[in-house]
Write a protein that binds this DNA or RNA. Structure first.
Lengths: 220, 220
DNA sequence: GCAAAAGTGTTTTCAATACACCCATGG
DNA sequence: CCATGGGTGTATTGAAAACACTTTTGC
């Protein structure tokens, strides 16, 4: 086996959460060259003294101000831009954060311009960011039909209309409110917390949480 | 961004086909150390002068004797074994070959001991091969429910019992023959070729092929 | 003519769909 | 009391499930 050439490894982080039923991804605005002022997925060079996971957790701490979230190593990508003598391989990673954790993040410690973008409307990205992000969203739209995964996004205190909006994004079509509720309830995977949402106008929505022992099934 | 340390890149290839309805993966037997005489996923060091795709196509040509098959870059994996001063990152790739192509492979040109293993019964693998392979199989069980992907495995001249066996593997449960046929036929995605299978004992099965324009839907 | 595997139809059951009115809150 | 969005029930439709006998081939 020929293992002659040396590569640099760049870890790329796609962090996802849900807000008001919309799937969101965290981007930051670059302040230096290259791609100055472009939005970008958080990224960092990998060094020998850290694992993928540690490198990614550090990034999440730095960009989101949260510790201990779910992460999953995702695809590798080639860098088609860099010169021949400085080849980089991108290792992308997906992080999933529930909305409550995002809400309570240590925002005062984030010294970057970061923003959660709707996955259906995101700006032009630095590097090959769009390729990476689109690939992640494709994967998540498949994976987030499974209860184990969706549970990571909605840990407690979500409303059914929020979850319906989310499922509509994942499926790419609109759903009937009564039928959606009927279906979710028949699966026996969530329960009322007893509280009600204080957000927005109109009748307050009941709050739900996933049950402890949720069996792994496909929602759709 | 710190891009200080150098890594070697090892491309790992998971090649999959279907034989008599069983999902199979290609392994080869190592003849040298380390892991001498262990079965292993084909792999090769990556050098500057080739892309992921070219490196993988070369491997497929070398191990399978086939050109121009579908490939997809998959997850990156860390190497937990190698010493600190020679770190390797594994970039795994999935290849999908239809059974007819495998049958007509240029077998005389393969100078390795290779074998197609059932994905439900494979041997102990060299390196972190089991982690990589299990991850690929998980992914494929999700992805192979979609018509576009399944079509890559069954291009022409397959029987419905074969396809049923395959779906049973993917779903992990057995299906009723009559109901299976009814469902597949109602989807309007395959058609009879007019020929019959010559394999096995009993009444010969009709041969089918996917239609040209198959819409992307989930089978289950 | 017998063993082996493929092909076929009908009934039942359950889930998905379609659809309209009332309820709780804020202003 | 009105605007806003949330919650609820029923009838219909369609797909999934359950189920047993006949057909084609090789030997």
């Amino acid at each position: 086996m020929n293992l002659a050439d040396n590569f640099k490894i760049k870890m790329i982080l796609g962090t996802f959460t849900v807000d008001k039923g919309k799937l969101k991804v965290l981007l930051y605005k670059k302040t230096g060259e290259p791609y100055k002022n472009y939005w970008s997925l958080p990224n960092t060079g990998l060094s020998y003294d850290v694992s993928f996971e540690v490198a990614v957790k550090k990034m999440i701490d730095e960009y989101v101000g949260i510790e201990g979230i779910y992460t999953e190593t995702f695809r590798a990508f080639e860098d088609k831009e860099t010169a021949l003598d400085d080849k980089i391989v991108h290792v992308s990673t997906i992080g999933i954060i529930d909305s409550a954790s995002v809400y309570y993040k240590r925002v005062e410690e984030i010294n970057k311009e970061v923003e959660w973008f709707d996955v259906d409307i995101f700006p032009k990205l630095a590097y090959n960011g769009e390729e990476v992000l689109i690939s992640m969203i494709d994967y998540l739209k498949m994976k987030l039909k499974q209860t184990e995964m969706i549970k990571l996004l909605f840990p407690s205190d979500f409303t059914l209309p929020e979850m319906q909006t989310f499922c509509e994004t994942i499926l790419g079509k609109s759903l009937d409110r009564r039928n959606f509720r009927k279906k979710i309830m028949s699966l026996n995977i969530i329960e009322e917390t007893g509280d009600k949402s204080l957000e927005g106008t109109g009748r307050p929505a009941k709050l739900y949480k996933f049950k402890e022992d949720v069996k792994e099934i496909n929602l759709f």
